[in-house]
Design a protein around this nucleic acid. Structure first.
Lengths: 116, 116
DNA sequence: TTTCCATGATACGGAGACGAAACAGTTAAC
DNA sequence: GTTAACTGTTTCGTCTCCGTATCATGGAAA
């Protein structure tokens, strides 16, 4: 069952959620960081720097820096792959799971108050 | 009639739309710029620098700079208010309308392909 | 008129992100 | 064992953005 959404509703939803995240002044991620975080938490592991860079169409340093920033916030964690020690496996954290979950709830809440 | 959306669908939708905008390499606005643009095109005019700054909870230079950037892209335009020449009235443009419209369609399209 | 207050724009220093290129570490090929 | 290829990271110069403070202009009040 697909989600039915009209253009005006979609735009309003984007505006409301954007407004909420800007004004909340809590953790504010850039658009790219948000997409990286969502990819890590929504798609099946394992996730690597190269894989994420390829999927998003950006360079590797972008991923490394985003992981540094989100690592400092305890939203993701990294460890070496024991099998192939060149690889870095990106792992989820408790705080990251909570953050993503709350973000999902925020969108759902905004969607619920949308006019017909 | 409110829009019904489940948390996992909402998160997937955000990821898909974010992915599309990152990879398109066309016009890429910051999160703040996007919210400003949507506010201009979704809420009834007139819009002023001060009003937008207050609504978003940011300082005035942020709005001025965003309007400069989006003005260079021909997404918005500005003119002095003839009544009170201190004010600047922010106006919509053809290109901006088209851009917002296409963005709305993108969200709707992503929503339509969402799994149950 | 002169003195305030309001508006939006600019100057400035600092912080952060970008891509290209060079880097250290690991594995594979020969 | 040496060379080559691949991983993620760092460096570099550049660019953009931020907030504070200041500026230039226009309106309102005395």
């Amino acid at each position: 069952m697909s989600v039915r959404l009209r253009p005006l509703q979609a735009l309003k939803l984007w505006q409301e959620v954007g407004l909420a995240t800007i004004r909340d002044h809590g953790v504010d991620l850039s658009a790219r960081q948000a997409v990286i975080l969502l990819t890590i938490y929504l798609e099946p592991p394992p996730h690597t720097v190269r894989g994420l860079a390829s999927k998003l169409g950006v360079t590797k340093p972008v991923i490394t820096r985003a992981l540094n920033a989100m690592g400092d916030l305890d939203l993701v964690s990294r460890r070496r792959d024991p099998q192939d020690r060149r690889n870095v496996i990106i792992q989820r954290t408790v705080r990251g799971s909570l953050f993503v979950e709350q973000f999902g709830d925020l969108i759902v809440e905004c969607a619920g108050t949308l006019p017909a």
